[in-house]
Design a protein around this nucleic acid. Structure first.
Lengths: 330, 330
DNA sequence: ATCTTCTTTGGAATCGATTCCAAAAAGAAG
DNA sequence: CTTCTTTTTGGAATCGATTCCAAAGAAGAT
């Protein structure tokens, strides 16, 4: 591979001069500059970013740790991150944790070893190992989607969103509102969305009935099973279902369809996430839009800012906007 | 930031010895090894991959260039790539071309400057600039989804798949088969899927009617418009539509729904891609599954192999499998 | 006690860039 | 024709690792 040394020799100048040409320093004579440019052109020389960042301590790469590549939510966020960072010439080094908690910690180390300028962590849990890994990290880390006590985080307001959505059910006259949730280890999706649901019911004086609740695991199939469980275990049936994710809502709707229950005539249903699926389901699903791409953009901006001038206090919490999308399932 | 030098000083050994410990060389005494390990533990030292790969010429990073992050097809492929490469300790450096043709070429250079060990290009066109960039690249490049004359490529058999799908229409008794296609600059999706459709019709002696054909642009909305165009421009209406993508098929179905045409009773329709949307559409869409994640895995494997021992002839073509998924829209 | 062999160690060069500093060349002023 | 600036240039150190090679030390053989 051609190096700056080769170019220097061929252009009959010093490496210093070549470096100057590369960095567009004005302190180079026109002839020298042209000679160097010509040689670079001829050889197809591409300077090594490694050597460069070894010296300059800047890599123009940021690491993104995500639970899974193939979900709409994450790709939207990553897309937003990429769009925003791309403008400033940053690239993304991917690290997929594959829902494996140990891997998240490992990946922070791995990204640090590659001297990324910053890290954006799409978090799925708030367990101890990952929290300490984040606070010990030597580069700025932005946590998206969960609340970490002493890190810069960017959160969706899952509690309020869930509260608002449940109130929409109530406003529409539903009285027996059930819930399909997920494991509370995922605080945002599991704990807070459930909490918002309960708060709304309590305030309205509506029953919080255990048999109208079941837990799924994000997938459409698990939503189907959860709905089935609710249907089979409850004496009086619920008249509506809040589902912590769109996919589980779709699964639930499938089950209801299979047992001949009509949506929204017999039962109302809504989800979270504004997935594409929710839009084209029949009937179209009422859902909460978290504007994920915008979230990615925000995350990128905050990271850029933090890299420019690192704040002393890292316990900033940024709350993202959300919106209710009312469609035909309620 | 702590460096190998600091560790050496603190453990009272030479950098050489620290390096040996890091690389698990047996030629280190037990005491020295333990001392070094303790210091590394205490300081939280993480060796710089930059410095390392500057010497070793290996980065354990591969670049993936993709048209857009937020489509199902690409995320599935990337997911497959990541799964396979992750096993061998490789990471992915993302480069999203945002459908901008110049950017693809730029990104090849950018990835080369970062000295990635290899590149996987999810190609959307076969125009000259990108083809020459690929053949001039100094690292192995695997092209996925399009045919490049002198590169290692991994292709979907779009012609045969389209031919097979169209024959399924014919077998089901459809006689007036229309087409929603895309720009032929995208050879795979635009040109070959159309060619397969035409071949099947020709062989069956069925009419190839221009007014039953329209061009979309991948989106659901464009499918809607294309279907509308066909419906308004044709005297006798087609009795079925082959759509070059699922999303356009969904859009077309929406239009037909709006004008009161029933699927599959009045008109049959099918798409390509086995998108999740196709599965949960009502009625569920017949489609072609390209097993994208498997494609990503294959691409990664081929790249790994090529990196191990570079083949002289780079014009290998690998054809991926596909399968017809028959559902209720035909 | 001396010579070999084997284990363990560190010095120094290297990878490919940047950057500080001083020297050389060119131009301006006296 | 000096002298002083200003422009242009290159030498050498540096970043943080690896690796070759030789030397020091320990252990074993005679």
């Amino acid at each position: 591979m051609t190096t700056i040394k080769d170019i220097a020799r061929m252009a009959d100048v010093s490496r210093t001069t070549v470096s100057r040409v590369l960095n567009e320093s004005p302190a180079v004579s026109k002839e020298a500059r042209e000679r160097v440019h010509r040689i670079i052109e001829e050889t197809g020389y591409i300077p090594s970013e490694h050597a460069k960042s070894l010296r300059t301590k800047k890599t123009k790469v940021i690491g993104v740790i995500l639970p899974r590549l193939s979900t709409e939510t994450t790709t939207r966020v990553v897309s937003g991150i990429d769009r925003e960072l791309g403008k400033k010439g940053f690239q993304i080094l991917l690290a997929s944790s594959d829902l494996n908690i140990n891997k998240e910690v490992e990946h922070i180390k791995l990204l640090e070893s590659r001297r990324v300028d910053g890290i954006i962590l799409l978090a799925t849990n708030t367990l101890e190992p990952i929290k300490t890994a984040v606070s010990e990290a030597k580069v700025p880390v932005i946590v998206v989607g969960q609340e970490f006590p002493d890190a810069i985080c960017l959160m969706y307001d899952d509690f309020r969103a869930s509260y608002d959505l449940t109130n929409l059910f109530i406003k529409k006259g539903y009285k027996k509102i059930g819930l399909i949730s997920v494991d509370e280890k995922d605080e945002a999706v599991g704990y807070w969305r459930k909490k918002g649901y309960i708060k709304a019911l309590e305030e309205a004086g509506l029953p919080i009935e255990k048999s109208w609740q079941a837990e799924g695991a994000f997938t459409i199939e698990s939503g189907y099973s959860a709905m089935k469980a609710i249907w089979e275990q409850s004496d009086t049936k619920p008249d509506s279902i809040v589902s912590a994710t769109d996919r589980m809502a779709i699964g639930a709707a499938d089950y209801l369809n299979d047992v001949g229950v009509a949506i929204p005539d017999d039962i109302g249903i809504a989800g979270f996430g504004a997935s594409e699926l929710s839009q084209y389901a029949k009937p179209a699903l009422t859902t909460v839009d978290y504007y994920n791409e915008q979230g990615g953009i925000e995350a990128a901006r905050i990271l850029l800012e933090e890299m420019e001038n690192p704040a002393v206090k890292k316990n900033k919490k940024n709350i993202l906007k959300y919106g209710l999308i009312e469609r035909n399932s309620l």
